[in-house]
Amino acid sequence: MITLDDVRAAALHLPRTQEHLIREYVKFKVGRIVYASVSPDETTMGFAFPREERESLIASDPEKFQLPRASDMRYNWVHLRMSAVTPEELAPYVVDAWLMAVPRSVGEAYLESLPGGA
């Protein structure tokens, strides 16, 4: 099970990330683009994810992933149940979501700076 603190730890070290509280949701943004959001009750985390791959992700583990609310279906977005994810599983989802929000050059520079490179 992950908590808001786990999401913060995965997100706030990423370049250009800012944390905001918007309508009781804790949102992680790059500029105006939200790439991750934690519900007020900390049961659900929404994150950027390609629309065309959303159905296959949910089908791969429906206990973990779910569709976003109807008003968010037009966006590259999916939800996960925070109780079904371990802290070790979280980081790749957050980094991949962040990569969708930053300029390609920023993402590539970050990935190259990791031990072992991209």
Rank of each mutant, 00 (worst) to 15 (best):
A91N: 03
F49Y: 15
V102W: 01
I58H: 07
L67G: 13
Y75Q: 07
L57S: 06
A91L: 14
T43Q: 14
R16H: 12
I33C: 07
G117I: 02
W77I: 03
A91R: 13
A36E: 09
R23C: 05
V95R: 10
D61T: 05
P115K: 02
I22R: 08
Y25M: 07
I58K: 06
V95E: 14
P50G: 08
R74A: 15
Y75I: 01
L114V: 07
K27I: 05
E19F: 03
Y25F: 13
A84I: 05
P92L: 10
L80K: 00
P40M: 12
D41R: 10
F49R: 02
V102F: 02
E53L: 13
S39G: 06
M45G: 02
Q66M: 15
A48E: 09
A118P: 01
F65T: 01
V94E: 03
E42P: 03
E112M: 13
D72Q: 09
A48Y: 04
P87K: 01
L90A: 02
E42A: 11
A101K: 00
R16C: 06
D61M: 09
E63P: 03
D72T: 02
D5V: 04
P50K: 04
H20C: 05
M73Q: 14
S71W: 11
E19Q: 08
M1D: 12
R51L: 12
D6I: 02
R16M: 12
S71D: 14
Y75G: 00
G117D: 07
S113C: 11
V34E: 00
P50M: 08
E88R: 12
L111D: 10
R32L: 09
G107N: 01
